[in-house]
Design a protein around this nucleic acid. Structure first.
Lengths: 337, 337
DNA sequence: AAAACACGTCGAAGCGCTTCGACACCTCTG
DNA sequence: CAGAGGTGTCGAAGCGCTTCGACGTGTTTT
């Protein structure tokens, strides 16, 4: 393994000079710089990460805590993770993957060991156990998601409340008066995941404003669960003509069931999905949807973190504005019979 | 930040003693051990990762290289990644997430910098550019997937060839004589991804043995692409009664299209999917499927790696035997008209 | 009773890097 | 032309940990 010292010797300079060439923290004449760079290339030198972390007091690693559960939005998680990793690399950071399994202890471990310089937390609950630890540790961090109390915290998230409102506005504008919301699995609501509850708030308050009735039903994914849920919805609100779906694995079953029941989309019922664009365009009906900007969330999270790491900026809550793309699944409400 | 030295002082022993308590590499009287452990707890000590890596010449980090592209099997990737991360933790390792983006350079960087002790590579192509580097670096590694040449390499994978064969056996056993294979997107075949080609080999050779005709068509996911592909298949082989699908995002579209064309599943046509069980049971028809054992692959990969890291075992190719679960999507071939 | 061996502990060296202060040397100023 | 101020380079001191050899003590062996 090639060391700094060997590079220095090969280039005929001192070790510190090589270090300064690498870091650019002191000016170096261009002749020496070139000589050193040449040696680095010839010897195939890579600085040792451990030594660097020890001496420099920063590891150039960002920890990313992803949820262990896979009961929702797996592709979104994956997309965020990939965006985080690639964005981090462009800023010279690597990404350490932590699963929720360890729980709050992971925060302690990473903070205490200097393994990572900063953390990104996903799947944030409204009252998240990890937050007290994060605050007290003073470790730079960004949440992807929004807890109940955002004091001292930087958060990046889609504006879910606006997302919910946007869906209602769209359907209300088309004349729909009875809207059903197919939500995530009950477990997601039970653990008070921020995005689910906020979406609901947005839906409901806009519904109140526009005089639309909203019926919300959580739903496990899959065909059978969806069949049951749908039956109950039409049972309770036979006049339902609009659907908002916030559950990837319920989308296709819903469409299949509606078709099967002879309800045409969008002539008889309209469907608005909250999902990645890819899902929306691949469905059996091209879905009017509000996209979940997964890539952007990951990218923004890293950028905020990096900004904090060099020159501590303040805390901030960044809510991305939702955008609704009308496609083939929504249209004017049918005339009342 | 609490250091070893502070713990030592607090416990009234030398630093080396604390270190030996931590590592267990020398015997320590139980009195001192307890005293030290007590101090560690009271001070909330966590060993510094960088210092440890530097002095101990191992970082206790495993690098996981996941593909950047998301043109296939995202949930499977995610599941593997999570399994890798959790299994690694149980062995005292953390996981560094690398995306394919950097390409072969990532191998060089990780190897050279001592950032990670070992690597796991996913999305291995038959002639993978990263392999020469891996071999020459001598870094412990495990591939999830199977390249063309496995010399000096440890690989873990589903036995895709057997998987393909199993699907044909199942359908042939039910009397189907014309089978269509809906494959991954063309790009996946173009870059010679091992699993796709091997599955095809297995399908074809078993088809030859059982006297079944096989028509293979790659397919981008989604409804429209599937519609086109399906039309072509029935055009070319109107007698097709069996389908093998190896493309998650084609499964639901296929079912919808068959339904729409009035072909009943499984009375008129049978469908066998190669996908995670969750997808199979959530589809609009409960699918006969061969599961992709994502968790097990991740777990096994880590375990092999850990075994290599302490006491270098030999290289090995581990092929997991596929299992087919019959569900509601396959049945006897209809009597010839 | 002396020699041999464990056992438990300690001090010191060193892992490869960053960074601080020092020191040449050179170019401006007044 | 002396002093001030820059510039480019170097040596040395750590960063917090692991590990090796050494050194008491207490126990066993001959």
């Amino acid at each position: 393994m090639v060391t700094l010292a060997e590079v220095a010797q090969h280039a005929g300079v001192s070790a510190s000079t090589v270090s300064y060439v690498l870091s650019g923290k002191r000016s170096i004449s261009s002749t020496t710089r070139q000589r050193v760079e040449q040696s680095i290339r010839e010897l195939g030198y890579h600085p040792n990460a451990g030594a660097r972390a020890l001496a420099g007091k920063r590891s150039n690693i960002i920890a990313l805590m992803i949820p262990l559960r896979t009961d929702m939005y797996v592709p979104v998680m994956m997309e965020i993770a990939i965006a985080v990793a690639t964005t981090a690399r462009t800023h010279g950071y690597d990404v350490l993957l932590l699963t929720g399994e360890e729980g709050p202890d992971a925060v302690r471990r990473v903070t205490g060991s200097g393994l990572a310089d900063a953390m990104i937390l996903m799947d944030v609950e409204l009252q998240d156990e990890r937050l007290p630890l994060l605050r007290e540790s003073g470790q730079p961090s960004v949440l992807i998601g929004l807890p109940a109390d955002t004091a001292d915290l930087t958060c990046v998230d889609l504006d879910w409340s606006a997302t919910g409102a946007l869906c209602v506005t769209h359907l209300a504008g088309l004349g729909h008066r009875d809207i059903a919301v197919i939500g995530e699995a009950p477990a997601v609501y039970e653990r008070h995941t921020g995005f689910a509850e906020r979406t609901l708030d947005g839906l409901r308050s806009r519904a109140r404003e526009t005089g639309v009735r909203v019926l919300h039903r959580p739903c496990e994914g899959g065909y059978d669960a969806m069949a049951l849920t749908l039956a109950r919805i039409f049972d309770e609100r036979p006049a339902t003509t609009g659907f908002v779906v916030q559950n990837e694995s319920a989308v296709e079953p819903l469409l299949a069931l509606l078709r099967q029941q002879g309800r045409a989309v969008p002539e008889d019922v309209s469907v608005v999905a909250i999902c990645p664009d890819q899902v929306a365009v691949q469905a059996s009906v091209r879905l009017t949807s509000v996209a979940v900007p997964a890539q952007e969330m990951g990218r923004r999270a890293v950028e905020h973190l990096v900004a904090k790491l060099d020159g501590p900026g303040g805390d901030e809550v960044v809510l991305l504005a939702p955008e609704l793309t009308p496609r083939a699944s929504s249209g004017p409400a049918p005339a009342a019979p």
